[in-house]
């Protein structure tokens, strides 16, 4: 696991210069289009003609591709085997001894794989090109609650420390003889000595966090100053409205195509 709890990859690209909300609108459009367009081909069109070119524009294509494939591959293998072999009453296309791959099952598996690929790569596109703190500040400026901003940003900062802490506890317990390998029973028994110290220790810490928040007037209402400033342009504002209209259009197109089929 990486140190930072975000895949954000700094690049001097046009995508990285976009306002976080424009990037968010773009990614939501990819998601909506990928799920709205019908057939096995719908999600693949979005993946190949929209997400990949955008990733290339953002200079993160290799990162996106390798991570997306790593995540989607186990799904793809599983769904092709299960739905291909065990589709009820399908037309067999390939005989494999007593079993056979069914055409309908393979069609369904291709569609599912496409959807997984689109969903996963849309999120990856967002995380690779958008700083999480910039995104939260943008939402905050649009009236999202400060509480939400605090929760998300605090989580991103403490999650990697917790992962390290969990690893340390695991190593410490192993060092004093806790068996973390072997039968399922033994591994389940190893769970409590790992989970309890991690959770107890961190809950006791939160009192200090709460005091720190109070001391910095977090619950005070009124405007606050941010160190990070965001640039927005009227072209991007118009672009976001267009993307919103585009989402409605692509959903309508999806429904129309399904009706026509």
């Amino acid at each position: 696991m990486t140190n930072a709890f975000s895949l954000y990859t700094p690049r001097a690209s046009a995508l990285h210069r976009l306002h976080p909300l424009t990037m968010l609108a773009l990614v939501v459009f990819c998601l909506v289009a990928g799920l709205a367009l019908p057939g096995p081909w719908g999600p693949y069109v979005v993946f190949l003609l929209l997400i990949l070119p955008l990733a290339a524009l953002g200079q993160v294509l290799p990162n996106l591709l390798s991570t997306a494939v790593k995540i989607a591959l186990p799904f793809a293998i599983s769904v092709f085997l299960i739905q291909g072999l065990f589709w009820t009453g399908g037309t067999p296309v390939v005989e494999l001894g007593p079993l056979s791959l069914k055409r309908e099952g393979l069609w369904f598996a291709a569609q599912s794989t496409g959807r997984v690929l689109t969903v996963v790569s849309s999120f990856l596109l967002l995380s690779l090109t958008t700083r999480p703190d910039a995104l939260m500040i943008a939402l905050d400026q649009r009236g999202a609650p400060k509480t939400l901003t605090y929760i998300v940003l605090a989580t991103i900062q403490i999650a990697p420390r917790f992962q390290a802490k969990a690893r340390t506890i695991l190593d410490a317990q192993r060092a004093r003889g806790l068996e973390t390998e072997g039968s399922v029973g033994r591994r389940v028994a190893a769970l409590l000595p790992l989970v309890v110290p991690l959770v107890l220790g961190s809950i006791i810490d939160i009192e200090e966090r709460a005091m720190a928040l109070d001391a910095r007037a977090f619950s005070r209402s009124g405007p606050k100053t941010s160190l990070l400033t965001l640039r927005d342009t009227s072209a991007q504002r118009a672009g976001r409205w267009l993307l919103l209209l585009g989402m409605i259009a692509v959903v309508a197109l999806g429904i129309w195509l399904r009706r026509a089929a």
Partner: peptide, 18 residues
């Protein structure tokens, strides 16, 4: 309350770490 607010990110990090 502030204690709840401080608890939530810690809880999310616990979910992820465990």
């Amino acid at each position: 309350n502030t204690l709840t607010l401080a608890l939530i990110p810690v809880a999310i990090a616990i979910n992820i770490a465990i």
